[in-house]
């Protein structure tokens, strides 16, 4: 991140506002994901409902960020790091919005699982969630700090998350094949695990944007 200030203070103020808005969105998305999983684990239907309702807030964040970024491009014609910052901030917002969609998916699946009664297998979601939440936190922190090192570290963390998700999904699939327990609940659980795995992928995407902002290197699809 180029830390020298612009001659035009309004340019700096606009960039700072954009960055703050993305970080605000990141906090809202993190909270949504946390409440979705918390609702499932604590059997709290109200919490699941609020996640679904609050997704609108995240959608609005995404739209606001697009408007801010477009206005910034029109007013200040950013180039170099500034241009990458603006474009990648929009891409980060896109990834965050999709993470929030996965939080909503988890909340919807959680409601269905909870309605079908208790199932101790839901506890296996917790370690996977912890890994996904850590990835998301690292991605947002990397964006905030402009840390390429932290952003690049997400690939290894995500590989670990993928392995854990596959292992858990395999275990649940075996239960389903053996008709052990409530099959419908287990299928919903499989989708919850899948959503958490996707959260990890999207966190990696955010990390890739951070690398692009800071070094202009495009490491997507490598």
């Amino acid at each position: 991140m180029n830390q020298n200030r612009h001659t035009l203070r309004a340019f700096d103020a606009s960039l700072d506002s954009l960055r703050s808005e993305v970080l605000g969105m990141g906090a809202a998305v993190t909270m949504n994901l946390e409440r979705a999983v918390h609702g499932l684990l604590m059997e709290n239907m109200d919490e699941c409902n609020s996640v679904i309702a609050d997704d609108e807030t995240v959608d609005q964040y995404e739209k606001d960020i697009d408007v801010m970024a477009m206005s910034l491009m029109v007013r200040f014609n950013p180039v170099a790091t500034d241009l990458r910052m603006v474009i990648s901030s929009m891409n980060v917002a896109r990834s965050l919005e999709r993470i929030s969609d996965h939080a909503v998916n988890i909340a919807r699946r959680a409601r269905k699982i909870l309605r079908a009664g208790e199932n101790e297998k839901v506890k296996m979601v917790e370690p996977l969630y912890t890994m996904a939440a850590l990835e998301l936190r690292d991605a947002i922190t990397a964006y905030a700090d402009g840390s390429v090192e932290r952003a690049l570290g997400l690939h290894d963390k995500d590989a670990e998350l993928d392995r854990a998700q596959k292992k858990l999904a395999k275990g649940i699939s075996k239960l389903i094949e053996g008709q052990e327990g409530n099959v419908v609940q287990l299928i919903h659980l499989l989708f919850v695990l899948r959503s958490l795995e996707r959260v990890g992928d999207l966190a990696v995407n955010i990390g890739e944007e951070v690398v692009f902002i800071e070094s202009a290197e495009d490491i997507r699809h490598q």
Binding site: R19, A27, L136, R137, D138, T141, A144, G146
Partner: peptide, 11 residues
């Protein structure tokens, strides 16, 4: 249970 990550302050 609180999983909300703490963001570092930006310099």
């Amino acid at each position: 249970m609180s999983f909300v990550p703490q963001l570092n302050e930006r310099s």
